[in-house]
Design a protein around this nucleic acid. Structure first.
Lengths: 226, 226
DNA sequence: CGACCATTTGATATGGATCAAGCGATGTGG
DNA sequence: CCACATCGCTTGATCCATATCAAATGGTCG
């Protein structure tokens, strides 16, 4: 079920399947052709933890974070999803994380039951779904490796990861706040900020504005990538 | 491909499908009927990181750990697998972690290609494989949540998890060493040991021998479970 | 222009790591 | 069968990376 917030903010629009997403993933195939596009303003909830996972999603523009809040208020960001990325495909039938738009975002919403029915008949689709879960799995495994590293290593790994995903030369445009980054890396906002400042002082990166980071010395970052 | 160590230590034995594993998982179905049983001595490698994922595995007796070693020698244990658990099913065709027997173990080894062929024809099997990956995914997601907690919380969570999986009253028999636990929890062996001692001093647990832990106050542990 | 929010920077505190012994169980050779 | 080596674990002392608390700065929007 879509969330109240989500529904409230929704601007439905049947999409002619001709719409080309900014950075399409190679591995999506028939899933491209399904679903309806919705818009979410900054910080709008797309779905909440514990809700029925009736839909799966694909980012068209903007960016999405998934997260979980622990009993005492600590928040862990599970992942960031950029244009072309699919998210919300859960093994069980409840979402285990919540999802929010980081910035104004357009998201393709696909009925899970439709996809499942399709997978039933078409082995190729089934394989694709499995693949998707598999990718997610290795992403999460990498995240674990990240969380045992030092603060410098975590930030370096994060920057390299973002650079790779955006692949816009050496400049990385971060859609997310320092708080989002901190909660993703398991650090405090202060530590993230200090680490970036330190890297800048070493000329490893440049930070022309807080959301824009230029990688000046990838080798140094890779060395930290451990 | 099976590892040198693995092959060297292997004692192949075609298993009459009548062999009943100690704690069968409910969700395995047809996969039960396939594969051959192998024995691995303590600390034997079952497969190595980067090897072709030609087989999937199911613990019959004993226990298995999967792990990854970072460039600088730090080791992260990805998970522990107890009798009935499947492991080694990777999305890609290379193992992303290594696997070793923690204690003398019997493992059912199943040819991946055979399972895939079966899944091709039988949607039920395909769904089961997907499910397996999904379970693994949520296990790993939980692991991430673990890694952002305090040492006490991590240990408490670990003990409750093990107690649940073994479900032998309040006594937990740990097949793994303190080092294994430490590497799973992202702590040092000293911190794990100290934390257990501290919990014992609070009468939350009893540690009659280093591998045996009795939960005396689950409520206190759950409170730490955050 | 002023208020607000995000970010940076500074000072201090602290949880867990590191370094270093000590201890107990297990096994081996004499 | 005992002495001793070994290994896994515990305990102690100290250090350090990162958290926490606090304030200053900067950027954005009405």
């Amino acid at each position: 079920m879509l969330t109240q917030t989500a529904v409230r903010n929704a601007s439905w629009k049947k999409t002619a399947s001709g719409t080309v997403p900014p950075a399409p993933q190679p591995q999506t195939g028939p899933l491209d052709l399904m679903g309806a596009q919705m818009s979410f303003p900054r910080n709008a909830e797309i779905y909440g933890e514990g809700e029925a996972a009736d839909y799966i999603y694909r980012v068209v523009s903007g960016a999405v974070r998934t997260y979980k809040v622990l009993a005492d208020g600590r928040r862990q960001v599970g992942g960031f999803y950029l244009p072309g990325d699919m998210f919300g495909l859960e093994p069980g039938d409840e979402h285990t994380f919540s999802a929010e738009a980081i910035a104004e975002s357009k998201v393709l919403v696909i009925k899970r039951s439709a996809v499942m029915a399709l997978a039933e008949r078409d082995g190729e689709v089934a394989r694709q779904l499995w693949n998707l879960t598999g990718r997610e799995l290795s992403r999460v495994q990498d995240h674990i490796l990240l969380l045992i590293k030092s603060a410098h290593e975590r930030v370096a790994t994060f920057l390299l990861e973002m650079a790779e995903r955006e692949s816009a030369g050496n400049a990385v445009d971060l859609p997310m706040s320092r708080q989002d980054i901190a909660d993703y890396l398991g650090l405090t906002i202060e530590t993230v900020s200090r680490t970036l400042s330190h890297m800048e002082s070493l000329a490893t990166i440049e930070v022309p504005s807080s959301r824009r980071i230029v990688l000046r010395n990838r080798a140094a970052l890779s060395r930290l990538n451990a």
